[in-house]
């Protein structure tokens, strides 16, 4: 889990700052412009402040629910079923080459 330096928790006074929103957008790989940050940061602060109301509602004795109707160990018969062909899988690719997805370079200059 990524660290968020300087962020305030539900017990803190400031819900979430513009700098924190910028950092979160960076973690989420979204290039927000300054104008977008100006617009979204105060809205997010209001939302975070509002949802912080759940802190302290449930004690340590309450188990967490991740799924409303939990199911475990779901298996299917081990039989081969047809999948997508290479042409189908690549049909919507922004770029492809030699039956493969073609992507921009993945290493930086220093790597």
């Amino acid at each position: 889990m990524p660290e968020i330096p300087g962020a305030n928790g539900p017990d803190g006074q400031v819900a979430i700052t513009r700098e924190e929103v910028a950092h979160l957008a960076d973690l989420a790989r979204i290039d927000l412009s300054d104008a977008e940050l100006d617009h979204l940061a105060p809205q997010l602060a209001v939302i975070v402040e509002s949802v912080a109301s759940i802190s302290g509602v449930a004690g340590d004795d309450v188990p967490a629910t991740s799924h409303p109707l939990p199911v475990t160990n779901v298996f299917r018969e081990d039989v081969v079923v047809p999948g997508l062909t290479a042409a189908q899988a690549l049909a919507a690719a922004p770029a492809s080459e030699q039956q493969r997805f073609s992507v921009p370079r993945i290493l930086g200059d220093e790597q």
């Binding site: 990524p2 968020i4 928790g9 979204i30």
Partner: peptide, 11 residues
């Protein structure tokens, strides 16, 4: 962004 925050270390 909200989800990234709620899943962050420390929060």
């Amino acid at each position: 962004i909200l989800g990234t925050y709620a899943l962050s270390s420390g929060y």
